[in-house]
Amino acid sequence: MIQVRLEPQGREIRLPKACTALKLLRELGLGINSALVIRDGELLTPDRRLNIGDEIVVRTVTSRG
């Protein structure tokens, strides 16, 4: 499983198989410039592969006031 935490909502989801950061954003309905994808304190570009066992943070960037 890939564990994904969404910020700032705090929601957590799990993905059953490996994919790319771009695929993850698409699954979440997010544009490629709408969120940071972070793994172990490292920023990932959309082409980077996410592997089983990864813990990912997806942080949306739109400020709301």
Binding site: E7, L36, I38, L43, T62, S63, R64, G65
Partner: peptide, 29 residues
């Protein structure tokens, strides 16, 4: 915003992430 968010992350800026609780009906988002 995306470019600034990346910069803030890489420079270790400790900023608030949660939005204003009153801004749910704002039109700009």
């Amino acid at each position: 915003e995306f470019e600034i968010a990346n910069f803030s992350f890489l420079r270790g800026i400790d900023h608030v992430i949660a939005g204003c609780p009153y801004s749910g009906r704002a039109s700009f988002p």
